[in-house]
Design a binder for these strands. Sequence first.
DNA 1: ACATTTGTTATATATATAGTATAACAAATA
DNA 2: TATTTGTTATACTATATATATAACAAATGT
Lengths: 131, 131
Amino acid sequence: MFIQIEPNSAIPIYEQVTRQIIEGIARGDMQPGDTLPSVRSLAADLGVNMHTVNKSYHELEAKGIISIRAKSGAVICSTEERALTPEQLRQIEKNLKPVVAEGMVLGATAEQIEHMMKKVFADLQIPVEGV
Amino acid sequence: MFIQIEPNSAIPIYEQVTRQIIEGIARGDMQPGDTLPSVRSLAADLGVNMHTVNKSYHELEAKGIISIRAKSGAVICSTEERALTPEQLRQIEKNLKPVVAEGMVLGATAEQIEHMMKKVFADLQIPVEGV
DNA sequence: ACATTTGTTATATATATAGTATAACAAATA
DNA sequence: TATTTGTTATACTATATATATAACAAATGT
């Protein structure tokens, strides 16, 4: 799989897994309907504990991105299933705020931040291995 | 002061303090050269421990936003002192990435995310082209 | 000069979070 | 039927978060 863990990061392992799966879906590496690897196999792949991956999967489910079918597997939700609610929009804005504020205080211009945002957006939209 | 603590938030108190001071500076509530309240007085104001505020101040210093003068006080750095380094730019982009990725996966369009970005800029009272 | 305020340092305690290690269970699956 | 699956439970270690006190020495205010 495409996930790379940084053991010494300040970001918890389960959070790294969550983010990289989200980025993988955004990039198109994984599509709606696809099944995620079992918590045991992914944990073995990454060299971490089963429960750590399990926590990540449940975080993804709480975000409405995957659906965990008990004793079967985890499936990526369709775009219809994960319709953007006003609550989710507010949350994204809430997440965006401290990042933008810090950038500005450090001396970045609005244009620089918009440019970085577009760069990130493009990174995620353009598949690494071609379509 | 303008800081409001949410005791039951998943975000640590010292991190809430750090973010709100950064937002305060971004908004212009506080300007370069201004002195932050002493760790003891702000802690008393917020009803939290001295060390919690102290941790926040040192986080702000590590980010290059304030300068702590031993046994005197904490001063907000000038925009020259906090010149944006390529390393800091990378960090901002790194912070931006998971937020944008999650938004996209949840079904937000590029326009929606750009719009939210402008809303955040407006909240922070930062002039943006075309607003 | 003196008292207060300041950040600093140290110690101690309590709680929560993160991560691992095993184990067992029951449903789904091959 | 045997294996794989997510689930649940227990136990343990380590780190992070937050508080509580106390003392120190430099800076500051009067």
